[in-house]
């Protein structure tokens, strides 16, 4: 599995490298000293795993993750940031504390899902099994796309409905739509993108539109213009 180390301190990166040396399943393909470098390297090297320091000059670790879709698997490496780590609402992350304990690192590595296929999760199309990183104010989530019932546009923000959460994040519905798997996600109107796997019932609505009932209990309207495409898609 290909890993990228992101930390602004050279010695911290070196220390992690030497700890990772005996883990043959992990191949460190690069090092980045800040978020900008890291973002570039993620696109170039397509790592499966990120060792990420939260505190960095410029954009911090969270801001970097917000810029990465899909979010790679992440092991946070931090000196003393209880506060930052408490931001997480779901247990979808792991972290190790500096100085890093070898046993702790091993445990964290064991939790990373094994990548079976030769390919890496980094590709232009976001798959249903991919995770995205969401941040709303002080709270953060790693959210797997298949858990998302629908996205709703709210001005410059979108609200993401998944599990019992609905954080509002600064993203554009249009940009997101282009990256989502069209077999899974469907743009029902200017306001919504729904996950077809969550559709429970479809009913006719006014003006030739449709009303989609989702398994979560919510209802989302399909505009007249999109209804034809929607029917077409479902009949396939």
């Amino acid at each position: 599995m290909k890993a990228l180390i992101v930390d602004d301190e050279r010695l911290a990166r070196k220390e992690l490298m030497s700890l990772l040396a005996k883990h043959h399943e992990v191949e460190v393909v690069g090092e980045a000293a800040n978020a900008d470098e890291a973002e570039k390297l993620v696109h170039e090297l397509r790592p499966d795993l990120l060792f990420l320091d939260v505190n960095m000059p410029g954009r911090d670790g969270f801001q970097l993750l917000e810029a990465l879709d899909p979010a790679p698997h992440v092991i946070f490496v931090t000196a003393y940031d209880e506060h930052a780590l408490h931001a997480f609402k779901v247990n979808a992350l792991d972290y190790v504390m500096k100085p890093v304990e070898p046993a702790r690192l091993e445990a964290a590595l064991n939790k990373v899902p094994r990548i079976t296929e030769a390919g890496t999760p980094q590709r232009d199309m976001l798959h249903a099994d991919d995770q995205i990183f969401l941040r709303d104010g002080e709270k953060c989530w790693f959210c797997t796309l298949k858990d998302v019932r629908y996205f709703q546009s709210e001005g410059n923000y979108i609200r993401v409905y998944f599990n019992d959460q609905k954080p509002m994040v600064l993203r554009s519905l249009n940009t997101l739509e282009k990256r989502l798997d069209p077999l899974v996600f469907f743009r029902t109107s200017r306001k919504h993108i729904i996950n077809l796997q969550w559709v429970e019932k479809i009913e006719p609505w006014f003006n030739g539109g449709l009303m989609v009932k989702l398994k979560g209990g919510e209802s989302v309207e399909v505009s007249r213009r999109q209804s034809a495409r929607f029917k077409e898609l479902l009949s396939l």
Binding site: L11, A12, K14, E15, S18, A79, Y80, K98, P99, V100
Partner: peptide, 18 residues
């Protein structure tokens, strides 16, 4: 400052080899 202390320890750990 715990942040400083743990970071310093971490640097020192790397420095022991170097």
């Amino acid at each position: 400052n715990p942040h400083f202390i743990f970071n310093a320890m971490n640097s020192i750990r790397a420095l022991i080899d170097e």
